[in-house]
Design a protein around this nucleic acid. Structure first.
Ligand SMILES: [Mn+2]
Ligand SMILES: [Mn+2]
Ligand SMILES: [Mn+2]
Ligand SMILES: [Mn+2]
Lengths: 217, 217
DNA sequence: TTATTTTTTTAGATTTGTCTAAATTTAAAA
DNA sequence: TTTTAAATTTAGACAAATCTAAAAAAATAA
């Protein structure tokens, strides 16, 4: 069994290795863990001893299959709890992350299976992220970041790549929530801000915001 | 904020001080915590520093009002989660204790208030124990242990004072579950076993089992 | 009341996860 | 390629929670 700390490291290494298959670097982990590089090196050695990561000095780490399965399982729990909090306890999508950050470490396979069933086997969490099944498998969404779209492009909001409360509250205010249809009217040259049709309403979003909205065309 | 360990100590001290108002002794805590008396002494000093317990060397500890409020709050969380597990996730009453033992440490007042509401503000947990309100208040049940009853006495099963899985499974098998009506037929002299009418069925329970069944007359 | 047993505390060590400061390795710039 | 800068690791220390063995206090028995 792993400690909470080890689980948090595994999850962060997993997320950092999602969008590239380079090894994950010590400083990157330190930043996400809000800790010092020296502490990360210590923990990496421990995870390597347990064969949860492959580690070569100065070269960063990669999850082993065993480490990846463990990490994906924590992600599964995190996302199922987020669905519970939003669907059953009526939390807003910007309020659930920190609580799920604790709940994800509760250790009972039976609990998670029953929670999954209670929630009717959801495929995505409140932020649109896919929920892995008990074997760690999930479908990769075919999505594009909103800032990559061109005038006349259209699609559905499928997720967000930034989970901070201020960002999510901002989207909520604009009406940019999951499942909504958007189509691009115009992209301003000098600042990259985007004018778009949200359902039938005309709104404008900054490039910075658009970068974190995921669209299925 | 308290660590999981501190919270477990507080809860155990609380439970040990429920049925008598003497100070709680070091060895009693050690036994419940499944740890060594020396470790208990170390932790007691820490809790005393935080003004969660009053402590005089060799004289045992008592919870301060602050410590008691904290302990009762953990009990509240434990019991609400047990209700959730049984009522919503269909766990049996003998399967929930260990999971609730973890869930009780999740730290979010908002979560517990919403969970309470989601469960329709239950007054008792699956074992009949009262659930304190957010201020730590709850009604004390007026109950008698089954082994204290005499022939012709009758009442309802309101709770159990033993939470082990084997014991609860045994009661389940006999049909001795919460809310059932019983009336005493006969108490055997030499072993204290009790013959009783459970609803309309005649059954027999040992003195040892009867000791842990709580009856409202 | 003195001796014996039980309970509790102290002393000193260990494990886990963290830190700072210094040394080492790798990467980038001149 | 040498110099400089950045990233990473090591060395040594610390706080939390635990342990074992030994000392001290309290309770019980003689
Ligand atoms: Mn976490
Ligand atoms: Mn999420
Ligand atoms: Mn607990
Ligand atoms: Mn209970």
């Amino acid at each position: 069994m792993q400690s909470f700390t080890e689980e948090n490291y595994l999850k962060i290494i997993y997320h950092l290795s999602l969008n590239n298959d380079h090894a994950v670097l010590t400083n990157a982990i330190a930043e996400k863990m809000q800790t010092k590089p020296a502490s990360v090196t210590d923990m990496i050695k421990k995870l390597a001893d347990k064969e949860l990561v492959d580690y070569k000095k100065y070269q960063g780490v990669k999850l082993t299959p065993k480490g990846k399965l463990s990490a994906v399982n924590i992600v599964r729990k995190h996302r199922l709890w987020e669905v519970f909090l939003v669907d059953k306890l009526n939390f807003k999508w910007d309020e659930v992350h920190d609580i799920a950050e604790e709940l994800e470490h509760i250790n009972s396979a039976e609990l998670i299976e029953r929670l999954d069933e209670f929630l009717s086997f959801p495929k995505n969490d409140p932020h649109g992220d896919p929920i892995p099944d008990r074997n760690g498998k999930f479908d990769h969404m075919a999505v594009v970041k909103l800032n990559k779209l061109k005038p006349a492009d259209a699609g559905l909001i499928m997720g967000v790549s930034e989970h901070s409360s201020p960002f999510l509250k901002h989207l909520e205010k604009l009406g940019l929530t999951l499942g909504k249809h958007i189509s691009i009217i115009e992209v301003t040259d000098f600042d990259g801000s985007i004018e778009l049709l949200l359902e039938d309403k005309k709104i404008s979003v900054s490039r910075e915001v658009a970068k974190h909205i995921l669209i299925k065309i």
